[in-house]
């Protein structure tokens, strides 16, 4: 237990923390800050770093040109950081809840539910564009809840995964039918959005996502203590004094709430949760209280890096960040699937 220190305050506060974890946290935090600065700096328009620093720092006014350009870059950076962290946290939560190291928000039908609601609303029912994102959020949460209820009925260890997959596949089929019957234009449109892209992220989107992150911050902080016993299986968790029959659905709801607003704003990001959580476990081990924040920082870094690469390396084309994350994810998935025993 070398490296563990304790934070003590009176009789009621006594918290352990590991120095290694703190060091990794600080390192990732610095990396993320650097990446965010790069995110503001890099783009098809050349801009000296000094002008960005002048715009960022509160000394004197920034020039209008830089400010206008930041309108395009800042929301992308914010949505990438918050969205990456939220999707990654969701993935890790689901991995712990399901006891399956390959779990991902796609698993519970949450991503597909949001996608299907947005498309059904837009294409079939003609819902105005401004209402599509909230509708998608509701749809994602509803499908997540449905999958949970069905899984609770089934009472099998892998019930959640099986039902989630079944619902995801059915919804995927529904989406394809809608798109194909809507003609090729609709389908092309759907394809470009379904890869997860940050191009459309606006300051309003960034603010909305920040609102969600703020609301979910408290439950997220409380989550690790509920997650730790779940790692030992339901029976052992319950006899240790946890309440898995309560904490599982609540944590799943949290996972859904984390991923749905991101899907509504930027589309689904497959594999992000998977890679981030596995990287985090490699770094800090298996304490949820340490894995969760490291997972979130890793997810934020990953999505930010993918978006930066997508909008600078392939010009004049901007490749959706989700596509690049998926490519990294497939490689990661294969590595993880090989490493996971059984």
């Amino acid at each position: 237990m070398s490296g563990t220190r304790y934070l003590s305050a009176g009789a009621h506060v006594h918290l352990p923390f590991a120095l290694r974890f703190l060091a990794i946290l600080a390192l990732l935090g610095l990396l993320l800050a650097g990446a965010m600065l790069c995110g503001l700096w890099l783009g098809s328009t050349d801009l000296p770093l000094s002008r960005i620093l002048r715009w960022l720092l509160p000394f004197g006014p920034a020039d209008a040109d830089t400010a206008a350009l930041m309108q395009l870059r800042l929301p992308r950076v914010i949505v990438a950081v918050l969205g990456g962290a939220m999707v990654a946290a969701s993935g890790y939560l689901l991995q712990v809840i399901s006891g399956n190291a390959l779990a991902d928000p796609g698993l519970l039908g949450i991503s597909q539910g949001t996608v299907a609601t947005i498309l059904l609303g837009g294409v079939v029912f003609g819902v105005p564009a401004a209402w599509l994102a909230p509708a998608g959020l509701g749809g994602g949460l509803a499908v997540g809840a449905l999958v949970l209820l069905l899984a609770a009925r089934l009472q099998a260890v892998n019930g959640l995964i099986l039902i989630g997959l079944a619902v995801s596949i059915s919804l995927g089929a529904v989406v394809e039918i809608i798109m194909v019957s809507g003609g090729i234009d609709q389908f092309v449109r759907y394809m470009s959005w379904s890869h997860g892209t940050l191009t459309a992220a606006s300051m309003a989107d960034a603010a909305r996502l920040a609102g969600w992150a703020l609301v979910l911050a408290m439950p997220l902080a409380a989550a690790p203590r509920a997650m730790a016993p779940l790692l030992l299986g339901s029976a052992q968790a319950a006899s240790l004094g946890a309440a898995p029959h309560l904490s599982r659905p609540l944590l799943t709801l949290l996972a859904a709430a984390l991923v749905a607003p991101v899907v509504a704003i930027a589309g689904p990001f497959a594999f992000l949760g998977l890679i981030a959580a596995h990287t985090a476990r490699r770094l800090v081990g298996d304490r949820p209280g340490e894995v969760l924040p490291v997972t979130m920082l890793t997810g934020a870094l990953l999505l930010l890096a993918a978006d930066m690469a997508g909008r600078t390396l392939f010009l004049p084309m901007v490749v959706p960040a989700g596509l690049l994350v998926s490519v990294a994810g497939v490689i990661g998935f294969l590595a993880v699937a090989r490493a996971v025993p059984r």
């Binding site: 730790a228 029976a235 052992q236 298996d286």
Partner: peptide, 20 residues
């Protein structure tokens, strides 16, 4: 209860598990 089987998170330390 010592359950018959249970998850054993590979990255968790012995001291952490006993601490559970």
């Amino acid at each position: 209860l010592l359950a018959q089987s249970g998850g054993t998170p590979a990255g968790m330390s012995v001291a952490d598990l006993v601490g559970m």
